[in-house]
Design a protein around this nucleic acid. Structure first.
Lengths: 219, 219
DNA sequence: TTAAAATTTTAGATTAGTCTAAAAAATATT
DNA sequence: AATATTTTTTAGACTAATCTAAAATTTTAA
C-alpha cells in the first residue's frame, strides 16, 4: 500500500514520462512536486525499492509497468471523481481539480467501482481525458497540442490540462471545451500566437495557452 | 487546519465525552484510537494548545466549545458521506463506516455543502444519527439505549452504533433498522438479555447488543 | 580537454506521530 | 495511614517526509 505522498510522486512521474523514451529528471520532479531535489532523491529511492520505477543515479527514473498500472489506478480515481463533481454536484470544470487531488487517495476499490457504475461508466472526464479501466488500461488516443499544429489543420478538442483554474476559466469563456471543433487559421511567427476558429468565431490565443489545448486530429 | 490524525483524536474525544460531565481519560482514548497512552498524552497536549480541549494533568480532558464545533463539522461530513454511499451508490449500511472514515477528512466546504444539497438536506444518516448543520449545530434528540429500558416500554429505533460491521449485519438480519418500532417484553435477570418485539416478531437480544441500539422514547 | 557551471546525491537536522521503558501521581487496599 | 496497584506522564528513540549545506557527478563551454 502506497502512502499519500508516494502516490503523488508516482502520478507526477507518470505524467512527466509522456512517451517514456526519456527519463524523468530529479529537478523536473522537484518542480512538479513543489519540493527540493534532495527530497525527490529520497523518494525515488523508495519507489525504486518498491519496483514502481527504475532509478539510475545522476540519470533519472523511468516508470515500470507495475508503476504505470498503479499510477493509472490513481488517475482513474481522479477522473471519476472529477466527473462526479461536475455531472452530479454541479461543479464547474475549473473547480474540480483541487478536490479531486484529495479524493483520488481514498482507498476502496468497491467505492470506485460503484462510483463508476453510478456515473454510467464514463469514457472521459470533464476535461476530455480518458478514464482508465479497473485494471489500469487506457484506451489510447494520441493527442496533439494546439501549438504543434500547422495552419490549415482541423481537430477536435479532446482534453485541456487542468492544473490552473485561471486558465480553465479563460478557456471556458472563449468556448474551448472538449468536443468542440477547432481550425488553425494562422500562426504569428514572432510570438507563436495562433489564430483559430471555434464555432465560427475567430480567436487569437497565445503560445502559452495553445500548449494546454490537446486535440484529436485526423491524419 | 487540523491534520488527519488530530481530526481523528478530536472526533474520538467528542464521542467519548457523551454529556461532558466527566473528563475523557487518557486510557479510554488510547483504547478508542488503538494506540498507547504515551501517544495520547502527546496528542492531547497539541489539541490543548489549539484550545480545542482543556487538559489537566493526571485528570483527563474536556472538549471546549470550539472543539465541539470542529468535531461536529467532521461528524457532519462523515454522516453526509455515509448517506451518499447508501442512498446513491447502493452500499449497505454495514459497509459504509470504513470508507466514510476516510472521506470525512476531505477538506472542501464547498464540496460538503453541494453534497448536502444533492442528497436533499437529509436530517439523519443511514444509522439514524442526526446530521449537524454547516455551523456544527445538532438538532438535539435524546437517545436511550435499549439496555436502559424497562419491560413494557416502547420506542423507535433512531440510531445504531456503527463501529462493528458484524453487529450491523446481525441487526440488519433481525430487522433492527432506524425507524422501526420496538417493544421491550422482558429482561432476563441473570444475563440481562432482553426479549423484544419488532414488527410483530418476538426476538431475544443479548445485553451486549442491546447497548448498541438507541431509541427515541415517548416519556 | 580542462575549467566552469549546472545537476544530483549525500550527510545531517527537523517535524509529526508513534513507541518502550522508567518516573511520577493518583487511586485502591490492607 | 502506609503500602501496593493502577494510571498517566516524561524521557529518549524510531520512521516518514522534508529541509539546508556540502560533496559528487555530469554537462557545457572556453
Amino acid at each position: 500500500m502506497l502512502s499519500f505522498t508516494e502516490e503523488n510522486y508516482l502520478k507526477a512521474i507518470y505524467h512527466l514520462a509522456e512517451g517514456g523514451a526519456k527519463p524523468v529528471l530529479t529537478n523536473e520532479l522537484a518542480e512538479a512536486m513543489q519540493t527540493k531535489a534532495a527530497s525527490v532523491t529520497d523518494m525515488i529511492k523508495k519507489l525504486s525499492a518498491k519496483e514502481l520505477i527504475n532509478y539510475e543515479r545522476y540519470y533519472g527514473v523511468k516508470i515500470t509497468s507495475r508503476g504505470k498500472t498503479q499510477a493509472l489506478q490513481i488517475i482513474r480515481k481522479h477522473r471519476l471523481w472529477e466527473t462526479f463533481l461536475v455531472e452530479k454536484l454541479g461543479f464547474t470544470w475549473d473547480e474540480v481539480h483541487e478536490v479531486a487531488e484529495q479524493l483520488e487517495h481514498i482507498q476502496s476499490s468497491r467505492l470506485i467501482d460503484k462510483l463508476d457504475e453510478y456515473l454510467g461508466f464514463p469514457k472521459t472526464d470533464p476535461h476530455g481525458d480518458p478514464i482508465p479501466d479497473q485494471h489500469g488500461k487506457l484506451k489510447s488516443m494520441p493527442q496533439v497540442a494546439l501549438d504543434q499544429l500547422k495552419p490549415g489543420s482541423k481537430g477536435i478538442i479532446c482534453s485541456v490540462k487542468d492544473s490552473d483554474p485561471e486558465l480553465l476559466k479563460y478557456l471556458d469563456k472563449i468556448g474551448a471545451k472538449p468536443g468542440k471543433k477547432i481550425e488553425v487559421v494562422n500562426r504569428e511567427a514572432y510570438d507563436e500566437s495562433v489564430e483559430i476558429i471555434i464555432e465560427k468565431k475567430k480567436l487569437f490565443v497565445s503560445k502559452e495557452v495553445s500548449k494546454n489545448i490537446l486535440l484529436l486530429v485526423k491524419l
